[in-house]
Amino acid sequence: TTIHVGDLTLKYDNPKKAYEIAKKLAKKYNLTVTIKNGKITVT
């Protein structure tokens, strides 16, 4: 599972963990989490 945050690309083997991290990042920086085709993007 890949999380895209701006220019950063973070890879995680565990999709659930990746989603949790994405949610935390989104909350911290007041951003939105988008999931599309298995890719998690924080914008």
Rank of each mutant, 00 (worst) to 15 (best):
K17C: 08
T43Q: 11
G6A: 06
H4L: 12
N30K: 09
I21V: 13
A26Y: 02
K11W: 15
Y29D: 01
I35Q: 03
Y12W: 05
I35F: 06
K17I: 14
K17A: 09
P15D: 06
G38M: 02
D13R: 07
A22T: 02
N37C: 10
L8N: 03
D13G: 07
K23P: 00
T1H: 10
K36M: 13
H4I: 14
T2G: 05
V5P: 03
T43E: 12
G38T: 03
L8S: 04
L8I: 12
I3E: 02
A18T: 02
D7Y: 10
K28V: 05
D7K: 15
L25T: 01
A18H: 01
P15G: 06
T41G: 01
V5R: 03
N30L: 05
P15L: 14
K28E: 08
I21Q: 06
L8P: 03
K39W: 13
E20W: 12
I35T: 05
L8W: 07
L25K: 01
Y19P: 00
T34S: 11
I21F: 13
I40D: 01
K39P: 03
I3Q: 02
K39Q: 15
K11D: 08
Y19T: 04
I3C: 13
L10I: 12
I3K: 01
K11C: 08
K28A: 05
K11F: 15
T1S: 10
T32F: 07
I40N: 01
I40R: 00
N37Y: 08
Y12R: 01
Y29R: 00
K36V: 15
L8Q: 06
L25V: 06
Y19A: 07
N30C: 07
K17L: 15
K11Y: 15
L31T: 04
V5E: 02
A22I: 10
P15W: 15
I40Y: 04
I35L: 07
T2N: 06
A26P: 00
K24C: 13
D7R: 13
G6P: 04
K16E: 12
V5G: 03
Y29F: 11
Y12I: 11
G38H: 05
N14E: 05
Y19V: 09
A26N: 01
T2K: 04
D13I: 07
N14C: 05
Y12Q: 02
D13P: 09
G6E: 04
D7G: 15
E20M: 12
T9N: 07
K36I: 15
I21C: 07
H4K: 12
K16W: 14
E20C: 07
V42G: 00
E20N: 07
Y29A: 02
I3A: 03
L10R: 01
Y29G: 01
N37I: 08
A22H: 00
K11A: 10
V42C: 06
L8F: 08
D13A: 10
Y12T: 05
P15Y: 15
K27M: 10
D13W: 11
K28C: 09
V5W: 15
G6D: 05
K17F: 11
T43H: 14
V42E: 01
K23V: 14
T1I: 15
Y12V: 10
I3W: 00
K16H: 12
V5T: 02
L25G: 00
N30Q: 08
L31A: 08
H4V: 14
K36H: 13
E20V: 07
K23H: 12
T41Q: 08
I35E: 04
K17S: 08
H4N: 08
T43N: 07
I21D: 05
K36C: 06
G6T: 06
V33T: 01
A22C: 09
D7M: 12
T9I: 15
T41W: 15
K39H: 15
